[in-house]
Design a protein around this nucleic acid. Sequence first.
DNA 1: GACGCTCCTGACTGATCAGTCAATCTATCG
DNA 2: CGATAGATTGACTGATCAGTCAGGAGCGTC
Lengths: 242, 242
Amino acid sequence: MSAARAPLPRPDPPGRRRSAAGAPVPDKRRLILDAAVRVFARQGFHACRVSDIADEAGVAYGLVYHYFASKDEVLNTLFLERWNVMLEHIREVDAKPLPVREKLAAIAAFIIDSYRHDPDLMKVIIVEVTRAANSFGQTHLAEIRTAYELIGGIVAKAQADGDFKDEIEARFAAMAFYGTIEQLLTGWIFGLLPQGAEEFERAKWLVVETVCGGLEHGGEGARRSREGPAGAHQHARGGAAK
Amino acid sequence: MSAARAPLPRPDPPGRRRSAAGAPVPDKRRLILDAAVRVFARQGFHACRVSDIADEAGVAYGLVYHYFASKDEVLNTLFLERWNVMLEHIREVDAKPLPVREKLAAIAAFIIDSYRHDPDLMKVIIVEVTRAANSFGQTHLAEIRTAYELIGGIVAKAQADGDFKDEIEARFAAMAFYGTIEQLLTGWIFGLLPQGAEEFERAKWLVVETVCGGLEHGGEGARRSREGPAGAHQHARGGAAK
DNA sequence: GACGCTCCTGACTGATCAGTCAATCTATCG
DNA sequence: CGATAGATTGACTGATCAGTCAGGAGCGTC
C-alpha cells in the first residue's frame, strides 16, 4: 500500500520533536528501519520475527505496528527508499552530456558505492526483493523495470550516436550491464569474491570495460577506455591489483 | 542431509516396480518432485504448504515425508539434480578442444535450453536457491562456487592462449558471463523480456557476443561473430592477437 | 498363515508468530 | 489544570503449518 512515505534515504522528518538542548530526539521510525536492515540481512526476511526487529531497535513490539502496517511494509519501505534514490541518480546521469562509458561508469559506481556504504541494505534489496519473484519482486516490478528501461535508453542513445554497435538490442544490453553488477554484489554478499576499497574501485572499471569493450582484444574499445575523456579517474590503482 | 539421492535428471530408480503389462508404475517420488516444481514456481517455497505439494501430486500428505525428510529436502533435491547436470555439462564442454566462444556458447545454450524446457524448475532454482543467500544459498554455496570456477577456468585458459585480454580477471569475467545469463532468465521469469523460440536462440548468441565482443564497435570480435546466432563456427585460433 | 518389508494414508499435535488492543505515558496548548 | 492527540508498551489471540504417528494395504517368503 502506501509504503513510500519516505522517498529519500534517511530523510529527516519535518517538524521532528527535539529535546530541550536542540538535539534531535531519536526517530523511532528510523530506528526500526535501520534495525530491520540488520535483522533482515542477518536472518533473512522470512526467518526473522517481528519481535527480532523490535528487540534490535530497542523498542516495544507494538511500536513496529504503530509505524508500519505489516512486516511486509517495513521491507517495502526499505526497498523503495533506496531504489528511488538510484532511479533519480540514473536520470540525472542520463541528462548530462557525457560519453556512454562515463554514464555507465557513474551508474556502476553508484550501485557499488551503495553496497560499500551499506552492504546490509543492498543485501536485503537484492536477496529479498530484486530476485524474490514471488512476493516482493512482483510488487515492485514496475520500479525494477524502470531501472532497466533507463539503462536501456542510455544504450539506445549511444547506438543512435554510433558509439555502440546496433546488433545487440539496447534492452538486452541493459540486462547484461545490470546483471553483471548484481552478480558482482552477489559474489561479495556470498563471500565468493574478495572485498575491499581496492576491489570496489576496480570493479567499477571492470564492469564498464567488460560490457563495453568485451573480453576479447579490442581495437578502439580498449584504447578509448585507456584515456578517459574526463581524465578524472585512474582505474588500475597502485600496482598489485590481483 | 542426503539430498542427492538422484544425481541425474529424472533418473529411473533401479528395480522400479512394474505393472503386469510391463509399463512402469508411476514413481510417486518423482511425482512429488515434479509437483513441487510447479507449486514452488507458482507460490514460492515459503508461501506454499507441504499439503499443496501433496495435493498437486495427488498423493497423501504423509507420503512426502516418506520420501523426503523435510520440505527443505525437496527443494535441495530439485536443485542438486539440475545443478549437477549443469556442472557435468560444463566439464564436458571444457574438456573439448573448442575455441572459447564456442565453449561459452555451449554453456549459455545449455542454461537457456534448460529454461526453455522447464521454466518452472529454472525459476525455482534461481529464485529460491541461487539468490536466496540466507537459507539455501548458504547450503549450496560450494556447488554454486564450482560453476563460477569452472567458467573462470575456461576464461583463464583463453587468456593464456592469447584469445582474451588479460586486464579483466578470469574470476570477474565468469561473474559477468553468468550474471548476464541469470539476468536474462530473470527477465523472462518476471515477464520483462519477450519469450519464444526465436528469442531463446538469439539470446544464446547475444550473451556470447556481448561478453566477448562488447557493446562497442569491435574489430575482430564483431567481424568474427558476424556469422550470426545460428552457426558461428568461425574462430581463427591463434589469429591476430594483440 | 504369519512374519516382515515397503508403500501409503490422513488426522492430529505442538510450536510458532503476525497482528491486535487496552492501557499508560508524554507533550502541547488553551 | 484538563483535555486532546500522538507515542509507546507488551500480553494476548487466532491461525497456520511442519512434522509425527498409528495404522492399513499389498506382496514376497519361510
